[in-house]
Design a protein around this nucleic acid. Structure first.
Length: 645
RNA sequence: ACGCCUGUAGCUCAGGGGAUAGAGCGACGGACUCCGGAUCCGUAGGUCGCAGGUUCGAAUCCUGUCAGGCGUGCCA
């Protein structure tokens, strides 16, 4: 449809530009609210009439005869306040759609796009908040790749930060464990650290004098070559592996893990610092409360300046982030070294190091960068972009996108279910922020376990004859699909107040509903093969042989057929729309509606039992078309496609 | 105090100038001897927070206002 609309726009513009003041960009083509009004609606006459001081409806009627040469259009009508509605030639359109399956009319616009997502502190297990981030980032990546873009996924690891230091403190000071003792811990390590981190946080709150030791640990971790550093390194690497495994469960993976430790040791910041000073992007404060600091002034003068380098000479988090952002664009004249870290499905995830390695791919040097971080980081992201602007990297500043979304919070009901204790003050609230520090959160693996357990029970109920392995594999796919759809279906601005019952649902607007639809279609094809020996390759014969006699359809079928096909044809428009608006709930909603339309159709018209050959052929082609579109939609959302369920 | 976001059906949310405001859940009532009931069909349920304004047209844009959330660290 995207391609067809582009053709229409250009053609209409060409036909009308002599007579009317009309811009190609203003020529929006939308859909009619009802099939009987036609398929596509041109709304421009209303606006045009205003500019020309004419009556809209008259203008529409005046224009219609000029459009008679549009290909693929059967009928044109004036409608409503002055719209021009187009009726498409159905057979031609449907046939065209079938023949172009597998081709895309989207095309890349960038040299290379870098997406940074997940970014979990490597000191505890991943939780539901991290899952939202990963699902969004991963889906963005999948959609951009579908569009043809060259995409690199980075997962930034803050392996030298205070959060890791906290857990090092816990092991060394609270548990008095040596590194070898830590290595011997057999329990799920990210869970172990989750609890320890909570203990440390409350200990530090009650024992402020311990901060001295913590600062010392932090410093030693940065310095390297000491027990604190070794411990931190062990913890972070082991937890990163746990995170990669967790994310692997829902089909999320990465190309590169850039580490803060590498940024420190390779002196990325020093390079960025001299650049910032050289271009006068930051200034040294001699007077006042920020005396001795290097600060950046914001474009928006109402906002106060942001400290980049503290009066003791240490750099803040944003400072390091500016250096990292510069590197992503290839603007730093410095690079990491890389080594393989983890293998997944034969694909290597690389990690940054400080020592040269024999062979490694090239990373960074993006022409566009997306940072997937929740909305609470909006201020800091703004400063990172300001940094680029101040350095006169205006093009890169424009191509730096904060992919912002609201947080995941916990409902009071979920808290109760988790047996988490909450302060009196927090009890009053409608929802509670997830907090690793307080241990308030649903661990990602726990949620996935529960989803898999429930899915397995459902599979067991329906397909008891399957092998154990197949049951488990199917349950895993359903669990993953349920979670991914759940994380995608909310608009970015919407806070997800997490509720178990809702998240564990497999009915209604859920991932499994979409998967079920897909399974049903495949089931028809499986039966066609079993009963009639009809195979996939026969679809191609059906397609190429003769025309599709839509006139053989009767009663309500033409309308239902056309409604379904026309909607399915909008897939690529939806993908593009989702990318442009960075709102993947559009894609989720679209896929759901497509399934609803299919399921309604499915209940009305049978395929296997249909005796009329022409009708059967049309229906087979229809469900084939829907399956192909649905397949692509699911894969863009990272929702697995089970054989059965 | 300032900045950003949110307020739509009992609940969770779509729709973000255009034709009759939609889903899911929950409630109630139904569905094929037939391709999978994780499905489908129907009924009830709405002053789109409130008040102004712009427009041929406003849930949508603007202003004000009320309510809630999140930011505004020499934390990360």
């Amino acid at each position: 449809m995207l391609e067809f609309k582009n053709y229409l726009k250009e053609k209409i513009h060409k036909l009308l530009k002599e007579k009317y003041p009309l811009n190609l960009s203003e020529l929006e083509i939308s859909y009619t609210p009802q099939q009987k009004m036609g398929d596509l609606a041109l709304t421009f006459p209303v606006q045009l009439a205003k500019n020309m001081k004419k009556e809209p409806r008259k203008l529409a009627l005046e224009i219609i005869p000029l459009l008679s040469s549009l290909e693929g259009v059967e009928k044109i009508e004036a409608a409503g306040p002055g719209y021009i509605n187009l009726f498409l030639e159905r057979e031609k359109f449907f046939s065209g759609q079938l023949h172009s399956i597998g081709q895309t009319s989207l095309s890349p616009e960038e040299e290379k796009i870098i997406i940074e997502h997940t970014n979990i502190n490597p000191n505890k297990a991943a939780h539901i908040g991290h899952l939202r981030n990963a699902c969004l980032g991963d889906t963005l990546g999948r959609c951009l790749k579908y569009k043809g873009e060259n995409v690199e996924i980075q997962n930034y690891i803050d392996d030298t930060g205070v959060q890791v230091a906290d857990v090092v403190f816990g092991f060394m000071e609270l548990e008095k464990k040596s590194l070898s003792q830590i290595k011997e811990i057999k329990e799920k390590f990210d869970y172990y650290c989750w609890d320890l981190y909570v203990r440390v946080s409350s200990y530090l709150e009650n024992n402020p004098q311990a901060e001295t030791r913590k600062s010392e640990i932090l410093k030693k971790i940065e310095e390297g070559k000491n027990p604190e550093h070794e411990t931190a390194h062990h913890i972070s690497r082991r937890i990163i592996k746990a995170h990669l495994q967790t994310m692997g469960r829902i089909g999320v993976n990465y190309d590169l893990l850039p580490c803060e430790s590498s940024i420190l040791h390779l002196k990325f910041w020093e390079k960025a610092f001299s650049l910032l000073k050289e271009k006068k992007a930051i200034s040294f404060v001699k007077e006042g409360e920020n005396k001795g600091c290097w600060v950046m002034y914001l474009e928006d003068e109402s906002e106060k300046e942001k400290i980049i380098v503290r009066s003791d000479g240490t750099v803040t988090y944003v400072g390091k982030d500016i250096a990292y952002q510069l590197w992503k664009f290839g603007l730093l004249e410095e690079d990491f070294y890389y080594e393989p870290f983890f293998k997944e499905d034969g694909k290597i995830v690389w990690i940054s190091t400080t020592t040269p390695e024999k062979e490694s791919p090239s990373f960074g040097k993006g022409s566009q960068v997306y940072n997937v971080i929740d909305t609470r980081q909006a201020y800091l992201q703004k400063i990172v972009v300001q940094g680029l602007k101040s350095l006169k990297f205006l093009a890169q500043a424009k191509k730096s996108t904060h992919f912002s979304y609201e947080m995941v919070a916990l409902s009071p009901k979920s808290l109760k279910e988790l047996n988490l204790r909450v302060s009196e003050e927090d009890k009053e609230k409608d929802f509670l922020e997830v907090s690793g520090r307080k241990g308030l959160g649903v661990k990602a693996d726990d949620l996935l376990d529960r989803l898999e357990e429930k899915a397995l029970a459902e599979v067991e109920k329906r397909n008891p004859e399957l092998s154990e392995n197949l049951k488990k594999e199917t349950a895993h796919k359903i669990a993953s699909g349920a979670l991914r759809y759940f994380m995608l279906k909310f608009a970015l601005n919407s806070i997800i107040v997490f509720d178990f019952e809702e998240a564990l649902s497999f009915e209604g607007e859920t991932g499994p509903y979409l998967q079920y639809t897909f399974v049903r279609i495949n089931s028809i094809f499986r039966k066609l093969k079993e009963r009639e020996g009809f195979e996939e390759k026969d679809i191609q014969t059906l397609l190429s042989s003769e025309r599709i006699p839509l006139e053989k359809l009767s009663e309500s079928e033409p309308a239902n057929f056309w409604d379904l096909v026309l909607y399915a044809s909008q897939f690529e428009e939806e993908v593009l729309h989702s990318i442009r608006s960075m709102e993947f709930s559009h894609l989720a909603k679209y896929s759901f509606t497509l399934c609803q339309k299919f399921n309604a159709y499915y209940h009305l018209y049978s395929i296997l039992a249909e005796e009329n050959k022409d009708m059967k052929r049309i229906r087979i082609l229809t469900i084939y078309y829907i399956r192909e579109v649905l397949k692509r939609a699911l894969s863009l959302m990272g929702i697995p496609q089970p054989e059965l369920m």
